[in-house]
């Protein structure tokens, strides 16, 4: 197939950035990121099945600075993907297609996912520090 000679549509970089395209690609990036998270979940559950020693190592890995970074990224990814996923489901049901609604729901997703991430970590640290 001679794909080289076909006319190309303008490349992505000629477009001005808009919230709609930012959220669209972030949904995909968080989907792939959460798939990496599923590997970490597999490791954590397997470590628990292996025994107390392995589980302790898994817990202290997740409590290291790198583990905390992963968990922080995972928390934001799941909240973003979840909120934006609900936005997708509303579209699938046929509502929210006006451009003004699409932008408003997009901002709502950003605010909600950042807010929920901060909230969960505040509760988490509160429980550890307060305990």
């Amino acid at each position: 197939m001679a794909t080289g000679e076909r006319p190309l549509s303008p490349h992505l970089q000629v477009y001005r950035w808009q919230i709609t395209m930012l959220l669209s690609i972030t949904h995909r990036i968080t989907g792939v990121g959460l798939s990496v998270g599923a590997l970490v979940l597999t490791y954590w559950l397997a470590a628990a099945a292996y025994g107390p020693g392995a589980f302790e190592r898994a817990q202290s890995f997740l409590n290291s600075w790198f583990g905390i970074l992963l968990l922080l990224g995972w928390t934001f990814a799941i909240f973003f993907h979840l909120c934006n996923g609900i936005r997708h489901l509303f579209w699938d049901a046929g509502s929210g297609f006006e451009m003004s609604q699409v932008r408003a729901s997009g901002w709502a997703v950003i605010i909600a996912s950042v807010g929920l991430t901060v909230l969960v970590w505040a509760i988490g640290f509160g429980m550890m520090g307060g305990a």
Binding site: P52, E56, Q59, L62, N63, I123, G124, M127, M128
Partner: peptide, 9 residues
């Protein structure tokens, strides 16, 4: 959140 610091038991 509540399992974060827990041990195996």
């Amino acid at each position: 959140i509540s399992l974060g610091g827990l041990d195996w038991v």
